[in-house]
Structures are given as structure tokens and as C-alpha cells.
Amino acid sequence: MAALPLRALTLRQLQFFSVLVEEGQFGRAARRLAITQPALSNAIKQMEKLLGAELLTRSTHRLELTPVGAEVLARTDFLVNTFEVALRDIESTVQRGRAYVRIGVIPSASARVAAAASEFLQDGHREVELSWRDAPSNTLLAELRSGQIDMAVAAITEPPGGLTCIDLFRDPLVLVVRRDHPLAAAGDASWEAIGKERLVLFESGSMPALGNPARAQFAQGPQPYRVSYSETLYALVRGGQALGLMPRLYTSSLRDPELAVVPLLKPRVERRVVLAYLPGPMRNVVAQELIAFLRERLPQAGEATVRRVSGKGVRTRR
């Protein structure tokens, strides 16, 4: 029997499919959707009939996506998220008289992005409601593709597929050391100067793709410690257990008298900080205006003072 036209698919069917995959079982998904299990099963069968392809392989205890189902799910999540956000836009506009824009940002860049966004709001855009999401770059880019956020300031080492990315600035790796460490008095350091000392670096974000290869190529010490949070990294450095290796952005708010930030040169290893968004028309005019504003302001913020440590204390270079 020939497949029915795809335009007969409904948003409700797509929502059912998305929840079913998330829950992994018809029973749990039906309870969450407040419908009967047979009704959910029939909706998925009708969806497969309309598409002319099997989306799931079913067994007694589990469901698995077929290759076609995996492709459909990615687009389903985008459509469902976009619909839910559109409803939120309408609610915000009708009830509050404001446009609604969702921004994703890596934690290390949050201070700069928040400052620029505040300037945007004060510059004739007071009737805007901003929603903030802070997460690692890979999470933000995935949420951007699925329509959960409108734009993201993220750090990348390779161009992400399916997104428009505007370079904002480069963020080099630096060392965080105790102030009584010999490297603190040097002003800057080469990778060879690390020698056989142990490093501590972040286990997620851009560091696995950036810090691990750099360390393997230039440093000769033991396997580094890997942590999730900057305070843990700083604690290990304070205790003399390791030298911290991290992007410079993370150190912009560091005010610890026991620690010093040392630029790593020869060679300089850095990540790209970009403003990313989906190609094509934006959801609303305000989101377009905010992207244009951030595109202009954030590269200027990226030229902020670089702290360098000398024997006399902290000095700055622009």
C-alpha cells in the first residue's frame, strides 16, 4: 500500500514519538502523555505508515531506533522544540508585551556575554525577555541544532556542521601556578618548561580536543588529573599537586593571592570562541538584532587585558 502524504503527520504524533524514545518504553511514555498504551502504539504505527518506513524495532523489554528513526528523531526534536518556543514567544508577547530570546553561553564567557546583553537591553531594547542557558560547548551546539536555544557563544576547535559560526576572539591556554613556583616569576612559559610536572585540566568542553593533544606533544610529565570544576583545579594547584592548564577566559575572575596566571607560549595553543546560530531566517527580529549587536561587541571584549606575572607581581599587556 502506498504511503500517505507526509503532510498528514501531526505535531501530536511527533510529540508522542519524541517522548516514547526518551522514556524507552510504551508504558512509561503513555503515562507521561496521559494516554492509553494502545493509543500511543496506534499513533506510532500510523506515523510509520505515513512515512513508509519503520522507526523502531520492538522487543519485550526495549525499543531501539532504526537508522531512519534516528534521522527522523533529530528533526522531530527540532520541530517540537521550535513549536514549544513559538508558544512561549506568543505568550511573552501577548501577556508581557515582550519578545523572547534564548541565549546559550559557555560559563567562561558568561561575564562578557551578560555585560554585552545588558548593554543591548539598555540601548533601546527594554521590551525583551532573555532566557539564559550555561553549559559546555558540545551541549550548547546540540541544543542549538534541536531548536532549544536561538544562539550560542561557544568554544570550538573544529567547525561544527549545520551551523553558522562567527569568530569572536581566540582564547589561549594558560598555566595556573602557585606564586612561589619558579614559573610564576618568569612572566611566561614554554611547554618545555613544564617538564615532568603533573598537569590538571578539565575533562570536558574543548580541553579533551585541545589540552590533551598539546600536553601529549609538548609536555613529558605523568598523566594529568582531570576535573569538572575550576575550584577543584585551583585547589590542586594550591596544594602543590599539579599545574593548572586551562583557557584564559576562566582566569578572568581569579583573585587568589596564592595563585598566578602564566601565559603559555612557544607554541601558543588556543581555542576559537564563536557566536553560533542556525542558518536561515531567525524566529524574530529581536534575535537578529541581538546577534548583530553581540557580533560587534564581543570581539572588543575579547581584547581585554591579559594578566602576566613578573617577579614584581602582576602586570598587564593589551
Rank of each mutant, 00 (worst) to 15 (best):
I194A: 01
Q223L: 14
A186F: 09
V80P: 01
E84N: 09
T93H: 07
G195S: 07
A115K: 14
T316G: 15
T60N: 11
L275G: 07
V177F: 07
L65A: 13
Q25Y: 04
L130M: 15
R98Q: 10
I166L: 13
R96G: 15
M1N: 06
L6E: 05
E158P: 10
L210M: 06
A209D: 00
E296C: 15
L298K: 01
V101D: 10
G239F: 05
A109W: 01
W191V: 02
Q122K: 09
R7E: 08
L175K: 00
P208F: 02
A34E: 08
R7I: 08
L51M: 15
A155S: 11
K196F: 14
D89M: 10
F169D: 06
L20H: 10
V306Q: 12
T157E: 11
R248F: 08
V153S: 07
P172C: 12
A109C: 12
E64Y: 10
R145K: 14
L233S: 02
R215K: 13
P299L: 06
L243S: 02
L33P: 04
L56Q: 08
A260W: 02
V21F: 05
S190P: 00
V200Y: 00
R170V: 13
I103H: 01
L56D: 02
P224F: 08
K312E: 09
E22K: 13
V306A: 12
R248K: 04
Y234F: 15
I149G: 06
P281V: 11
T82F: 11
G187E: 04
M282D: 06
Y225P: 06
A216I: 11
H61Y: 06
T316W: 14
V285C: 11
S230V: 14
L210D: 03
P299V: 15
Q122A: 14
D150S: 05
V72L: 07
H181R: 12
L264Y: 07
R317H: 14
Q148Y: 09
V273D: 00
P257Y: 03
L140C: 01
G124Y: 08
R88P: 13
V261F: 11
Q217E: 10
P224G: 12
V286W: 00
D77H: 02
L298Y: 03
G239P: 09
S137Q: 06
L79W: 06
A276R: 01
A115H: 05
A235S: 15
E84R: 07
T232H: 14
